[in-house]
Design a protein around this nucleic acid. Structure first.
Lengths: 196, 196, 196, 196
DNA sequence: AATGAATGAGGATTCATTCAT
DNA sequence: GATGAATGAATCCTCATTCAT
């Protein structure tokens, strides 16, 4: 019944100017943490509370539940894209960054799962889009003749690893994800976020 | 303290004790359908409604949410066990039966996913048990020196395939599951239920 | 997962933050009346309805059933404390105020009854606290050598009078309470609320 | 939330003849125990279960909730009447028996409380009757010139003691009841059931 | 632009009571 | 006569969403 508890507010009220942008960022950060701790079904009020803003602000920035999730994943995807665009990154390295996001949050994992039951209008649309961007980024670095160069194999493999990457702690999830890549015979670089 | 205020309404027929077994079966069937359509978080009231019984009946037969899910999956697992126990079934054949169940219901898929967020006491306990039974059944037929004979590889592979086996229709899910086994280099027999 | 399916209905006015304090007061007043009429086990929904607010409001202001009762009795107890603190109030006068509250509401009477069956965690905790406050207030004015100065006699006598103070109308209850004090040989001042 | 738990069944099923009378007795005994453990609001199903009979039987013997409670108290009252009728019993002794019943079960205590809120049709009617019988029994042995011979004092005193006789265990309740009689200046004999 | 209170539908759960067998 | 399953109303509680201030 009880999820891991996080402190309600991580940021004191802030009435100043530029509050809008700040609030948006705070909301996304808060959502990421809440999602990680409680999953995608967490109450929106918890996110607002943790961001230190009223619930109205959340609705001002995001029309609905899906928009929040999308915004959170947006940044994950962007990191992967940046990794793929960065110099000196091999395919295995990009895969490592992808894997990091896969193991970091139940949310990210969730949205890449295209489950029929979740295929509600908005959510799926976004999921596909994000999924496409991930695919494009990976393919940028995919060497010719790689084990996964075949048409559908790349994202199929990602889905498979995400299926394996469940577990109570990040450590467990990472170990399992690594084992899954191993079973596929695919080499992965260090599992880590990509930060500029 | 207070009793129902309108106990005067005409009360629908009460099937009597005979109906008990029938109702239980109806509930399980209804749950299977609802789970397939909406996932494991579907409201219990929807299950009762679809089974054509009052909510109380559901609670009479199943003490809590987990008991319902367990009862539903129980039969899936039993089929796999029976397949493993039947003559002339090769490992690949058992895998085919497993895959059928994987693609048939979001629920079955769901319980094999050990998602941290779902790892609530009871649910997990059952999941582990059922998962263990699946593993034992598969291992019965696992040939020595098989690609998956290594300690953890067997269920890891199952989780990977279940991760890949999402999709809007059973056909899509089956195709993806087959592709996933292929990517793992594991041969699978015909994907079908096992019926005596 | 599922949102309210009919969010389109016209929504009644929302008083805005100003209404918060008003609502809280309305809830307490409503609770007092409902408790008097139905006892402490009355449905919370009845209280919300009588206060003219949604059930959510009740839960916003009071985390649980006990909190409502506590808030209601809080004021009764405060009156007794104020009476005890006021000038010119003799012990008998404070006892009169206490008696008034005893006869006014079944609820107040109820919480001083420490019935084993009601001794559930939270409720009892509050009951003890409020009971302690009543005791402290009375003792402030208790003359030395009074018939009830003995260690446990004071609150025992209060419990006894509260046991006697049942009856269909306030008048009956007051008469019985007075008779009870008489039987104990304790003088009581006028039975009335204490208002500044 | 949880009450002291009692085993469900105290008596194996019994299909034989004379089952009717036996069942009635078993139901009353079960009700007494359940009431003592959980209070008067305990579910009827718990009583039937503990009596080892179906719920239908309970309804055959008792038309409604109140009838069950009345039947239980009936026996308590009868004991008091028998005590009053027995040789060598002084008023104080009868009072001791009364006090024993007062402290034995929350139920008995409850029904003597004539709280306005509980004054629902049937319940009150029975309560009054039982209360009258108790009064008559006591008065049989009340010595002339006793402190409680005045018109209303007798039952007022009983109500007062019952108000004081709350507490988590029978021992506590007994001690408090004794102290209450002491405060009233009334002598009480040994606190015990009256068994022939 | 932000706040956070209010609404009220929805889902879980419990029991009194009826009734087929 | 007994059994115990079924019904379904009632209550509790939680949140998504709106909106006065």
């Amino acid at each position: 019944m009880s999820q891991p508890l996080l402190p309600d507010v991580r940021r004191p009220a802030n009435g100043g100017p530029k509050a809008a942008a700040r609030n948006r960022a705070a909301l996304i950060a808060a959502a990421r943490e809440i999602y990680a701790a409680q999953g995608l079904d967490a109450p929106l009020s918890a996110i607002a509370r943790r961001a230190g803003v009223g619930q109205g602000v959340l609705y001002r920035h995001f029309p609905d539940r899906d928009a929040v999730a999308t915004a959170v994943l947006e940044e994950n995807v962007r990191q992967i894209e940046q990794a793929a665009g960065a110099e000196d990154m091999l395919f295995a390295d990009v895969l490592g960054v992808l894997t990091w996001h896969l193991t970091e949050s139940a949310a990210f994992l969730g949205l890449l799962h295209v489950r029929a039951s979740v295929a509600r209008s908005g959510a799926l649309a976004h999921a596909l889009t994000l999924s496409d961007r991930v695919e494009r980024a990976l393919r940028e670095r995919l060497p010719e003749g790689h084990r996964l160069s075949e048409q559908n194999d790349l994202m199929l493999a990602v889905a498979m690893v995400s299926g394996a990457a469940g577990g109570p702690t990040r450590e467990v999830r990472e170990r399992r994800a690594a084992a899954a890549w191993g079973l596929l015979g695919v080499e992965v670089g260090p599992v880590r976020p990509f930060e500029v």
